[in-house]
């Protein structure tokens, strides 16, 4: 499936099958969660990143079912197709953004998502404690979402942010690597 086709599918589902909510509500809700985590973990940002990833993982495991139910798409033929599906359909229907897929490695197992727009981070200014700018990945929940969602469709991946405009970087970039395809599980042998 081509990138254009994926974009069209994403656009179509976004228009016809998605209940919309106020963007500020989402932004404020997510922001509050991150701020609360920072407080609960006493500004241990590594731990906050980890918790966000974990929360995302749990969301992703559910979200994939909703994604499949709404989109009706089947299994992707390869990882490149998966990348387009994530960027042009997944992100489109859940966040109304379509990050750019780029920086593929030659083995087609790693790519980057470049976010021109990140609704989770609207209005956000990181705490100026001299550490948050270097340690906190504000939107880290998204990495977990991808990890959880792809695990459910038999792909073990690793995802992390490499830059974020909130930190003063020029772009917001997430790196996604395919670790392996997960084999079907067999039922436990009867005794």
């Amino acid at each position: 499936m081509s990138t254009q086709k994926a974009s069209r599918i994403g656009e179509e589902i976004w228009k016809t099958r998605i209940d919309k909510v106020n963007a500020e509500l989402v932004t404020l809700t997510y922001g509050t969660i991150v701020a609360q985590l920072c407080q609960d973990y006493d500004s241990n940002y590594q731990e906050v990143n980890k918790q966000l990833d974990k929360m995302g993982y749990n969301i992703g495991m559910r979200l994939i079912e909703d994604f499949l139910a709404k989109s009706g798409v089947g299994r992707c033929a390869n990882f490149r197709e998966t990348a387009d599906m994530i960027a042009k359909v997944g992100f489109k229907i859940f966040l109304n953004v379509a990050p750019t897929v780029t920086n593929w490695t030659s083995d087609n197992n790693q790519f980057s998502l470049i976010f021109d727009d990140n609704p989770l981070a609207d209005f956000v200014e990181l705490p100026d404690d001299g550490r948050a700018q270097d340690e906190l990945w504000f939107s880290n929940i998204l990495c977990g979402v991808l990890r959880g969602a792809l695990e459910m469709v038999q792909m073990q991946i690793e995802a992390h942010f490499v830059s974020d405009v909130l930190r003063g970087d020029d772009t917001t970039e997430m790196r996604v690597s395919l670790v392996r395809y997960i084999e079907d599980e067999m039922p436990p042998e009867d005794d």
Binding site: I64, E65, G74
Partner: peptide, 13 residues
């Protein structure tokens, strides 16, 4: 005796 119907999601359900 019977008919078995099958549907599998991409998430292996």
């Amino acid at each position: 005796q019977y008919k078995l119907h099958y549907y599998e999601t991409p998430t292996n359900i």
